[in-house]
């Protein structure tokens, strides 16, 4: 996932920027999105496949806010020492509930988001991660959300 400086042409950038904002719910959405980009459907499909294959897009599709259906996204952190770092990362990433995971510059060097369908499952999932990874996990559930809108132009 450490995609180094990647070659993106102007059309790749337009596609990434446009499609970060949304996508039609129509029978032929790629054709409709392609029209807005003034390209044809086959070109858009080929470009999206290439962007995904190259890891420039990590995903293309629906983004669900599972909290609206009783689930939770919970930010968690732990410390892993250098000797066990790779092993701890692998154990955390092996859990399907771990949606995102970043290494960060702090004593708490691993930060990940647990995404669960039922809020009540949190304790069990965290206990399982602690047991598998052999670390103590701190949970930082959100108490207030002030703003969420990630849009990073290419």
């Amino acid at each position: 996932m450490s995609a180094e400086e990647t070659t993106l042409d102007a059309l790749d950038r337009r596609i990434i920027n446009d499609l970060q904002r949304g996508f039609p719910l129509t029978p032929n959405p790629y054709a409709d999105a392609a029209k807005a980009l003034q390209i044809d459907e086959a070109e858009l499909l080929a470009r999206l496949k290439s962007l995904l294959d190259r890891g420039i897009l990590t995903r293309f599709g629906p983004l669900f806010q599972i909290e609206r259906a009783g689930g939770r996204f919970v930010l968690c952190a732990c410390h892993a020492n250098a000797e066990r770092l790779a092993e701890v990362i692998a154990a955390i990433n092996a859990r399907p509930e771990v949606a995102h995971h970043y290494e960060r510059t702090h004593y708490l060097n691993l930060w990940f988001v647990v995404a669960i369908e039922r809020a009540a499952a949190l304790e069990d999932v965290l206990a399982r991660i602690e047991a598998d990874a052999g670390v103590a996990v701190l949970a930082f559930p959100k108490e207030r959300e002030f703003f969420v809108n990630l849009y990073l132009p290419a």
């Binding site: 420039i56 293309f60 629906p62 983004l63 609206r68 990073l152």
Partner: peptide, 21 residues
């Protein structure tokens, strides 16, 4: 699902490093 907020949007999720961020 979109109307209820359960579907935030359909779209592209970039690797921000690959975009230079």
């Amino acid at each position: 699902m979109q109307a209820s907020g359960l579907l935030r949007r359909i779209g592209a999720v970039p690797n921000h490093y690959a975009l230079g961020w």
